[in-house]
Every structure is written in C-alpha cells, then in structure tokens.
Design a protein around this nucleic acid. Structure first.
Lengths: 352, 352
DNA sequence: CTGTTAGCGCGTTCAA
DNA sequence: TTGAACGCGCTAACAG
C-alpha cells in the first residue's frame, strides 16, 4: 500500500501516533508497555508500514546519506573506491549518493551545491583538482567534507590518501635495481596533486640512483589510455634515443603506452619495460601482466567512509591517513636488453 | 551559514515565505512582481540560501533520487551501466542512490526495503536473479521498478536489456566460420537469466552448424575470473580431448580461462581460441586482445535511466527494450591449429 | 500580485 | 506509561 503512515499504524493499534513512534523506535521501545508495543509492531507489519526516512530526516537533521563525488565512473580505478566507501557506510545504514564531475570545475560546483541542498550528512570527494580547493573548503563550512584518493595539498580538510611520492620512488628503485639507467615518465595531468607527487618522487629517486630521465615535453590532459598512447608515441618519435623503461603515471596510461609500443613494432618488456600505477586488478591477468605500484583503493575508500561517519556523529577527532604503497612485480619489467640503448633507432617512422 | 531557511530569506526581503517560495520557483516566478522577485533573489543570494530538498520532497512527494541496485561494484561491467544511468538521470537533476547486493537475496531485500523507505522516485536493478522476481514485483507495487542488464523472464516489469541469445549465437557462428568443430562453453550461474540465454543461444547455433560441444559438468557460482579459471582447469584435466575453442560466458571468466591455459602450458589462440562476452573496454588492449560479443552497457544504462524517469512522471507508456549485440573480432580467436584435435594431450598434470 | 492557512510524516517536548 | 501539542522547511490551496 502506498503511503501507510505512522498515523495509520497508530489508529490500527488504537494508540496515539507518538506512542506508535516510541514503540517502533528501538532506542525508546522500553518507554512503552510490552503489550502496546506488540500491538503496534503487529499493526505496522500487517499494514506494511515503512517509515518515511525523508520526514524523519527533516526532524532529526540526518539523512543517512553521504554524497560521493567521482571524476569519472568509467575509470576502473574508482570502482574499488566506491566499493570501500559503500562498505563503510553500510555499517551505519547509510547509502552513497553518487555524482560525476568529468573533471569539470563548474560541474563539480553544481554537484556540491546539489548535495548540500539535499543535506547529505557528509561529502566524500575523489575528484579533487588543485583548482577545486577553495570551493571544497567553502562547502566544508556547511557539511563535513572528506578528501579521498586525490590529494588536496595545503588544505586542512581531512584526507584519506595514499603516499604517491613513496609509490613513485618504489617504481624508480625497482627500475634501478633491474639495471636501467635511461628511463622516462609519462606524466598525468598536473592539476591533480597525485601526479605531481608521482613525478617528483620518481625524479628524486632517479637522480639519487644516477638514472637519466629522458624528458617528455607534454603531460596527459586526462589520465586515460588514449593519452598514454599519445605521449608514448611522441616519446618514440622524438628521436632522442629511447629509454629502456617507461613509467606512465597510471595503469590506464600504461595500457595506452603498450599499444603505442606495439604499433611501433617494439615489444614489452624485451625492448622497453613498463611500470604502471594502481595495480588495477584486471591488468594483473593480461599479457604482459603489468608490473605496477599497488594502490589500496578499497582500503582508501573504506577509510574515507569511516572518516565521513566519524565527522557526522562527531565521535572523536578525525585524522587524515595516508596508506603506504607496495610494489607488485610482474612481467612487464625486466633488466634492459642487450640490443638496448640510446643508439637504438627502430622503425619509429612506422608508428604513423 | 548552516540552516538559512526560506523563512529567513522572506524576512530579509520583507515578504511572506510563500511569496519567497514562488519567487524562487522558476515555474512560478511570473506570479510575482518583478520587483519583489529581485528583492527575494538578492536576499537569497546574500544569505547563501539553499533550498532544503528533503523538505521539498516531503511536500511534493518526489525526492529526485533513483535507487540503483548493483550486484557487485567490483565488476568492471557495472561501471558503464552506472555511467549511463547517471547520465540519463542528470537531465532531470536526479541522482542515483547506489547499493550492492553481492548476489545475496536477503541483502537485496534489505536494500529494497531501505530504498522504499527513502521514497526514491524509482528503482533500477541490475542485479536480478530469478529468485528475486517476486520480491521485485512486490516492490513495484509501491515504486516504479526498472529491470536492467540482468533479465527477469516472465515478468511484466519494464526491462532494459540486451539480446543474449543472439549474442551467444553470434559467438557460435564466428567459431563455426573459423572452422572449429569442437568447442566448449564455460557457463555462468544459472540463476542469472542472461547466462542461461547465452548457453541456449550458443548450443542452438552449434547444433545447427554441426559443431560438437564438449560438456563441462559444472557452472560458475559467480561470473568472475576465479571461476572461469576453475572451470577451464577442469575442462583441461577432464581428458575427454580438448576443444579447439572455448566460450566463457563473460570477459572476466575469459580472463580466468586464459590464466588456466597458460598454467597448462597452452597458448591462446594457437592452441585454443577464446571468445568472451561484454567487450570490456580494458580487455581490448591486452594481449591477446579478446574477441568478444559487445554488450552496449552504457546504452542499456541510459535506456534504463530514461525508463525510470518516464515511469516517475508518467510521461507516456514505458516499453521494454532489448539492444542488439555485435561481435568484435580481435586476436584471441583464429582457425583451429594443425596440432589440434581430440588426440592432443598436453601436460594437464602440470596444471596443478 | 500577495498573504493566510494548512499540512506533508515524523519525533520530541511537556503534562498528565 | 501515554496523550497533546508543536515544529522541522517547504509548497499548495484559497483568499483577498
């Protein structure tokens, strides 16, 4: 039956609505005699009563809803994040309300506005770019905001992150240990802090290890396969001499880089080693299985969800967390091959 | 400022709340003099007023929210579905509220209950199993329910689907055209209608083409890589003689099947061709690029979203749709090799 | 064109 | 232990 209200239940049980309310509230059921409680519960069940969470929210000031902002739902990287967030929220019977910015600042603004209008209990963003900072801090004056996955440096908002500097250092150290001395990175968009951190960590470790970095003039506009392919192609055709290993800033870009290699008639890892970032589950099983810095997305999501909950019910202070990276070595990285080196010039012209 | 209400705006503008309400409602702003309208709008802006969508919903009976139920957010297959749904909803400024069943009936029931309590405007489920039918039809008596992606045969609920029978026939026809005469399928869970349809379509076409199907005793408990790997392993060790081509019921299972092949020292497609289902974007770029039946997930999601909207505002009748499959041929399928055949027995023992 | 009144469904006073 | 009254923030109906 559509619209069975508390009033109806009360009438059916022969009590006042407020008594019915108490009888049905686990926190207050002992303020009611056992007999009437049972009558109310029975009536509710019989009529198919369902509390109206919207009305309850209006009264209690809580909506049991957390806004979740993602940059691109099409990126497999976000799925485990959402998964972790949803899992954490479930413990308090809260649900995520999801929207997608497509990395557009104005869209992001509209989304925040909408979520604030809905009076979500908290907002978790996984889509922050540096330009979004002020807007997010503004929103945080109304509703708790948790920054997840994509860092917002210099902000005092609580953040659930992963240490991208160390992760990139891990990548560089791995290549150094294999004996590479000439490498390149394919950089992700610079207005996403994670990528500038990866770039910095990688370069720092390279110089410490005495590795030469072949510069790639451009950066990706978006961290996707097409852009990885474009940058790799550019690297291959620049003619400065190939590096023996390449670090695209995430797995999607690594996938594109692999495609560009193949187009150019080069092989991975025989000709060029590739090391990715994120440890995307599905890429662990493909050929060549991708060596990648593991990003604990699900755990980051869970942490963010728990932080959102803590902020909502004010249970103690909320500390930012940064989970450590690990390296998963698979088949896309090997020591540099004998035929390798700056002098090698192989069919880059064919790559068009 | 937290909690600026319409009342505050009205006071600041020196008008009655209901006048302020009208002035701020695009659909009614012409019932108000231009002068007062401007005063109200200015006051709202100055105070940082944000309408309380919850309260509005209580009054109007609409929440601008659509419940979306997924089986497993960890499956890359759902991302484009969500994407399509979110895109469709955005046009009416509605947002998806997402929950995950993990293919558990009781969880599904709790989720539906929760969503009905929230008075979502409609529910889109992409997680239907045959056992969920009655429950869903029950829910549909309160709130419009759209069945997407996973079919619910025999139900009169509106459905946004894809033709799995034809898709599987396409797969069989492709293998037949390549000259395969001995094939096998790795079946997904039988309580998901899509997989029984794929099984039926594939078998029908095989017998019409005179192709022999090597039976695989078991079916996957869940349509995931591990299960694909397990079934493939089983097929390889059964000793009945290998098929020259295998049809796992989705790309994830295909990925597992590839892993099992490799474990057994067999190669794809040289020794065994593999054809998947879903055309998962990321697997198009891996080695071997997977031949797959293309499932237009995003379009199915969009269609489902539009259907949910139509049901919500009763704009015309809502027809179920079934989008046609296409085949994307890549490198994982080739004609059967010369070394192939029932007699071939290769290191299955090593696969343990 | 604007103000008044009423109530969406619920939970929380305060009395009895 | 229960009932009465009120209000969360907003909008729809009805007056004026």
């Amino acid at each position: 039956m559509p619209g069975v209200t508390l009033h109806d239940v009360a009438a059916a049980a022969g009590v006042h609505p407020s008594t019915a309310s108490r009888a049905l509230d686990p926190a207050k059921e002992d303020l009611v005699s056992e007999a009437t409680r049972r009558r109310v519960v029975a009536a509710a069940a019989r009529l198919g009563y369902r509390p109206h969470l919207g009305a309850r929210g209006l009264k209690r000031g809580r909506t049991a809803t957390v806004g979740v902002v993602a940059a691109d739902l099409g990126n497999p990287f976000v799925t485990p994040l959402l998964h972790g967030i949803a899992a954490a929220l479930e413990e308090v019977r809260s649900l995520p309300l999801i929207a997608e910015t497509q990395d557009d600042h104005d869209r992001f603004e509209r989304i925040l506005d909408h979520m604030l209008s809905r009076r979500v209990d908290a907002i978790v963003t996984t889509a922050a770019r540096t330009a979004d900072r002020e807007m997010l801090e503004d929103a945080a004056r109304h509703t708790p905001v948790v920054v997840a996955a994509r860092a917002l440096p210099g902000s005092s908002l609580p953040q659930a992150l992963h240490d991208d500097v160390s992760g990139a250092e891990l990548a560089a150290a791995h290549l150094a240990a294999l004996g590479h001395v000439r490498v390149a990175q394919l950089r992700g968009p610079l207005d996403v802090a994670n990528f500038t951190q990866r770039a910095a960590g990688f370069s720092a470790r390279c110089s410490r290890e005495g590795i030469v970095e072949v510069p790639v003039a451009e950066t990706a506009e978006r961290p996707v396969a097409e852009e990885g392919q474009r940058l790799m192609h550019r690297l291959l055709t620049t003619g400065d001499g190939l590096p023996t290993a390449v670090f695209p800033h995430n797995d999607l870009m690594a996938l594109g880089a692999l495609a560009a290699l193949e187009e150019a008639g080069l092989r991975c890892p025989a000709d060029v080693s590739i090391i990715g970032y994120n440890d995307t589950e599905i890429l662990a099983r493909t050929a060549p299985p991708l060596t990648s810095v593991s990003y604990p997305s699900r755990e980051v999501g869970e942490a963010a969800g728990r932080m959102a909950i803590a902020l909502t019910d004010g249970s103690g202070p909320v500390e930012s967390v940064s989970l450590p990276p690990t390296l998963v070595v698979r088949a896309s990285t090997t020591p540099p091959g004998p035929g390798q080196g700056p002098a090698r010039e192989r069919a880059p012209a064919a790559a068009d």
